[in-house]
Amino acid sequence: MEEKIYGYWLPIDISTHGHVIDWLINWLHVFMIALFVGWGVFFVYCLVKFRKGSNPHATYDPVKGKVSKYVEIGVVIVEALLLVGLSMPLWAQFKNDFPDPANAQVVRVVAEQFAWNVHYGGKDGVFGRTAPQFVTSDNLLGLDPDDDAGKDDFNAINTLHMVVDKPIIVHLSAKDVIHSFKVPVLRLTQDVIPGQEIKVWFEATKTGTFDIACAQLCGLGHYRMRGQLVVESEEAFKTWFDEQASEIETGEDDFF
């Protein structure tokens, strides 16, 4: 894959919702530049034409004309259209139209200074119960040792594996301070707030390995709180998943 992922403008978009965002960002900038240039031409024209040397006597009466009024009304209409036509529907879809968990992957991501714990439900697909008092260096997720559902769970630290072309629901929570789960290629930012669980969903359309970043200052290691998003085919994911799951069974890994 030779396509350049990152550059000086938007990175490539591998999400199903991102094209609307890109369309909005790009056209918004066209609109902004058009306004600025149009307005700037008038500005420079005035500076040249009405400099003291060229126009020694100012006009007392205000300049007449409706152009500025039309421009202002135009700005209001464009803003209203973008707001009602694009931004609100996209946000509503993003926030409310969650995929059916039966047809989607579900993972938990637990942020901490300065790592992303990615909690998979294991073979049974059920997340074990977690609680803060169970957290140890061997049990970063704080899985309850008495809960059988958690026996096959595993924690892929800083690596989120997901299947391409299949929606994924991520339950985000934090152990200590506020973090923010950001994946530029997915056009996604979501604060992760201790004391709350916030879910987001997305669907990736391209395979590959991409950066996950922390977007909210979380301490001295904020800058290196980097995770990897691995988007892969169903088969590759299954291979990886089985490998992780069997490590748990054979006790190679200490996670409960």
Partner: peptide, 29 residues
């Protein structure tokens, strides 16, 4: 005079941040 175009750039670039959809990518960057 310079204030005017500079403030205009500042104001205009607030638009993509003020719309939640575009803010999804630009927030905290």
């Amino acid at each position: 005079l310079a204030f005017i175009p500079m403030f205009a750039i500042g104001g205009l670039t607030g638009l993509p941040l003020g719309l939640t959809a575009s803010d999804l990518h630009l927030h905290d960057t």
